[in-house]
Simulated assay, not measured.
Amino acid sequence: MSFAGILYKGYEVLLAKEIKDYPVPSHVAIIMDGNRRFASKYRLARYYGHLKGADTTEKVLDWSFDIGVKQLTVYAFSTENFERFDQEKKYLFELIGIKFDKICTDARTHRRRMRVRVLGNTDLLPPALRSSAKHAEDITKNYDGVYLNVALAYGGRQELVDAARAMALKIRNGELHIDDINEETISNNLYPSDGSIPYVDLIIRTGGDERLSNFLPWQTNGNECAAYFCAPFWPEFRRIDFLRAIRTYQTREHERQKNTVMRIVKLLSYYGKVEVEDVICISRRFIKIPKDDVINILHELINHNVVMHNTIKW
């Protein structure tokens, strides 16, 4: 192994150890961008870029579920992708179908109890791909260990339009009253048809672009999720890139928790000495943070703030 390879491996091991000390995101969504540019970079056919990208997706499934991610949503084919050349679409549909078929027989699917769900207007897809996707959904419909959500023929705005239509139809049929429509009602009418996916905690985009491209607008904006944009094309995405993304989420989440705990301490200080147990109780109620994490944050705060040190009563 080269010196650079040794450094890379060492850094990867270090990152893997670091992220174990903090909670991992429950739901990760990925915009897998750069397959075609990867192929162009090496003067290869476009299908080769998609093939290599599909291999990367399999690796990311392992990386995600092995560290404790519960939901992984991948952007496999957007409504805008229908504008591509027929031959490229045909190859992509065949490749995605093959991957669905493999999921059904892969031992990892059943060991993890991985449920597959498809998000999007599947009526736009060719019959063979619709059949493969539905078979994967049917085979795994009773699993609840982890979830793989595949966005196919997906557009975020169209998802909201379809949800509005679904609710309008229910109102017309007397199944829903207009006064009952709230955020939960809208979420329950989004893709997939058998139940909504949860808010996204972390969104990753490869390929260098820093935009979300009409991907999960309701699920990402509603949760103010962390975003990680990186330069490697999707076929070049490495485990170290994935671990960096997870660390970005953890750093952002820790700062959010720390700011909340600090506000709670300041509010309680208006009434006199701040009892640690009160801070713990209120923090756990509002941000669902473990007791030990609250205590660690309090130690972090008092180590950098003399006033706060004198305010808190242990």
Rank of each mutant, 00 (worst) to 15 (best):
L202K: 04
P126S: 07
K288N: 13
D278S: 14
N259W: 14
C104T: 14
D101R: 15
D138Y: 08
R205M: 02
D21I: 10
W218S: 02
E300P: 00
G68H: 05
Y75L: 01
P198V: 01
T248I: 03
G120R: 03
R111L: 12
I289C: 02
H309K: 14
R247C: 00
H27M: 09
E159K: 02
A4P: 00
R108M: 12
L298E: 03
V306Q: 12
G5D: 13
E255R: 10
R113I: 03
I30V: 14
G207C: 05
V307R: 15
P25Y: 00
F237Y: 14
V146K: 10
T206L: 03
V279H: 04
V306W: 07
E277S: 15
A231M: 03
L216G: 08
P25E: 00
S26H: 11
F100K: 01
R244E: 09
L72D: 10
T260Q: 09
H27Q: 10
T311N: 09
I30E: 12
A226F: 04
D138F: 03
S131W: 02
V24Y: 00
F286D: 04
L15Q: 14
A151N: 02
S187D: 07
T220H: 08
K90D: 14
G174F: 01
D101M: 11
D62T: 06
F237A: 10
N214I: 03
S269P: 05
V161M: 12
N182K: 12
I240D: 04
L72Q: 11
A151W: 02
K170D: 15
K41Y: 09
A128D: 15
E94T: 11
D55F: 13
L169V: 13
I295A: 00
E83W: 00
D55S: 13
H50A: 00
L268K: 10
L243D: 08
D123F: 12
V294G: 11
L202R: 01
Y75K: 01
N121T: 06
C281F: 13
I203K: 03
Y22S: 13
G174S: 00
S269A: 13
I302C: 05
I287H: 09
V24R: 07
Y22A: 12
E137C: 08
I203N: 05
E137R: 01
I287F: 06
K99Q: 08
R130E: 11
L301I: 15
D138P: 08
D292I: 12
D101F: 03
P192E: 01
Q257M: 14
G10D: 01
P232W: 15
K313R: 13
F233H: 15
K288I: 01
G53M: 01
D33N: 13
R111M: 13
I30K: 07
K170M: 07
D138R: 02
K134D: 14
T206N: 04
I282L: 15
Q158K: 13
E159N: 08
E159L: 04
D180H: 10
